[in-house]
Design a binder for these strands. Structure first.
Lengths: 361, 361
DNA sequence: GTGAAAGCGCTAACAC
DNA sequence: GTGTTAGCGCTTTCAC
């Protein structure tokens, strides 16, 4: 304890800051500050952390502040976390972060809210690979995260990686069979909203282009559609519920059949499908929205806002999902008694819906 | 040092794991492992970290492994980092993470490479707000990051936040006036590549739709265009270099003028402009690529790959930018003697370029 | 080959 | 109001 301080101890002569051109942060410690300020480390710790209930004299407080300034002191979170046995990290493991803007929005929402609550997000991108998941989890656990958000870029069921159970967690945009806490979009409500966009303008003969992929979206949106139609007192003509691939090509193919079906409006599984429908309709000489009104889903900005005409659609609440995820995790928000927390999918009106040419209302 | 261990020492009776239902990771420490294995903490540390040159007996090694397994021990990175004075974090501060897929790709590239090198990315989203930047920096510095990547979602000049200089850093997709290390896309090369896509098919009368926004992209791409034209022995007709807003609307407006200019091909500032050009051309009864060949820029997947016909374009190397950013930061890669590191923008051939109808070559 | 012991920089009792 | 002190869990000389 008396010798062997050569290595690092030597740095405490007051002006070690910025001396190491590359590598870590400043090497000024809280101890250096306490010395300069002529107070104990406890006092410094208290003023730095704005500890409430710590009675510190105005003078001491000022001297500490000045010393911090003079030395360019930066607290070492590592040391603080070690003592507290807890970090201020929240882990977010995502199956994708750039494939679509969706995952990005979840991350952004989670980040903003975490930040607001004083936490930092530790993000890991697994590309849905189990090894990466395990490694990411290990890393997060090693860093003493407060909890973990497990998210997917599209709404689906997942199997949880082992190890997730070692820590508090909530699923975002996905769910697991058993009672694992989760936040997901309200697909049924979304399907209802999409349909209502058309219903409100007086449409009654409405096609519904569903995806061929089994998923909560496939099941939920059509259910919402049927609900809305029922409320409007319209029988759903099953001929108008068409399964098609959830992309432009699928929309194009299904769109070609629309002209012969005598519909005045169509709900598409997503914006890309709507984009294909636009193309198909145009080829048949039909105008949107004058001949056929079109509603998308997802509110994928780059498509929806810039199609000609701009597409009315229903937004997936990714940002909100991220926000709620951390609120739930941190206990700021409460879970419903049963099932996942469902977040509303708000309708976004643009210009692809008009009153039907031949009034049918 | 002989007493006072009551507080926490009590937890080490062997089976403290998983006792705290929520909150941190397991409370099993390396010390618990050493006791179970009947070795010293030093030995445990060595085998856990696969310390090379540490001579550990096969038997001891095995016993440690078993103890780790039995106890479900997880190393505490916080403690390790404290001792080492360095974390295995690399900070990435981005001005956006979800506005476009661009930022996401940078993050993904950086993440993948960091992971490969044994580091974890600490990501902060500042939305270009100075306060958020300062806070993010402080947080990263507090966590003893090894270095910081400062990135922007579009290529531009930035002013560095104070504090960045306290730590090793490199700019990604942006640059600062002085000699700050940076990685950026090679805009000139990209402009050349876009033009060559057309030149290679025999086009000679080529329009260039430039953005109205001053930027490296605006300056670089046209320069590359001129270079390529010069190499092909073609004088650039300045009437064919048109400034227009860098979005669909801008492309639509400029696209309408194209028909009267007698061009057979057009280079667009980006894919959204190309999208607008498609619309304008179609309105004038012109087909892509039969009447006019179109080349975009950005390779914004959701647009480029799904326009009808799919758009030939030039990709912005965001993923690669992220990768190179961490390689440069970590010294795995060397910087050019002068200026930023420029990463190539590769051409992506799809179906919007064909030989001109009236051969002009 | 293995272990003892000294801290990394900080927080939190607790004493004064 | 302020200071002393005992560690947080780990790595790392250095001794044997």
């Amino acid at each position: 304890m008396t010798e062997g301080r050569g290595a690092t101890g030597a740095s405490s002569d007051g002006t070690a800051a910025a001396s190491s051109p590359r590598g870590g942060a400043a090497r000024v410690t809280l101890r250096d500050v306490s010395r300069l300020a002529g107070v104990s480390t406890t006092t410094v710790s208290h003023v730095i952390n704005n500890k409430v209930g710590a009675r510190i004299g105005d003078d001491a407080r000022r001297r500490v502040r000045e010393a911090v300034e003079a030395l360019g002191y930066r607290p070492n979170a590592t040391a603080a976390n070690l003592v507290k046995g807890q970090s201020s990290f929240i882990g977010l493991v995502a199956d994708s972060i750039a494939t679509t803007p969706f995952a990005g929005q979840i991350i952004r929402g989670a980040q903003d809210e975490a930040w607001r609550l004083g936490y930092t997000l530790l993000i890991a991108n697994t590309e849905d690979n189990a090894d990466a998941e395990a490694e990411a989890l290990g890393m997060m656990l090693a860093h003493q995260v407060r909890g973990i958000l497990f998210s997917t870029w599209y709404h689906r069921e997942v199997t949880l990686p082992a190890g997730l159970s070692e820590v508090d967690h909530v699923l975002v945009n996905c769910y697991a069979s058993d009672g694992v806490r989760a936040v997901v979009p309200d697909e049924v409500g979304g399907g209802r909203a999409a349909t209502e966009l058309l219903l409100a303008q007086g449409h009654r003969r409405i096609a519904f282009l569903n995806t061929t992929t089994p998923s909560p979206a496939r099941r939920g949106r059509i259910a919402g559609h049927r609900e809305a139609m029922a409320v409007a007192g319209i029988d759903v003509d099953d001929e108008l519920v068409i399964d098609t691939a959830p992309d432009q090509e699928g929309g194009f193919v299904a769109g070609q059949r629309l002209a012969d079906l005598g519909v005045t409006g169509v709900c598409c599984h997503n914006d890309r499908v709507a984009m294909g429908v636009y193309d198909a309709l145009r080829e048949r000489g039909l105008a949107v929205p004058d001949d056929v009104s079109v509603v998308g889903f997802d509110n994928q900005e780059v498509i929806a806002a810039h199609l000609r005409p701009p597409l009315s659609t229903v937004a997936l609440p990714h940002y909100e999902l991220g926000v709620q995820g951390v609120r739930l995790l941190m206990g700021v928000e409460d879970f419903p008694a049963v099932g996942p927390l469902r977040v509303a999918c708000p309708p976004i009106g643009r210009s692809s819906v008009a009153r039907p040419r031949v009034g049918t209302a």
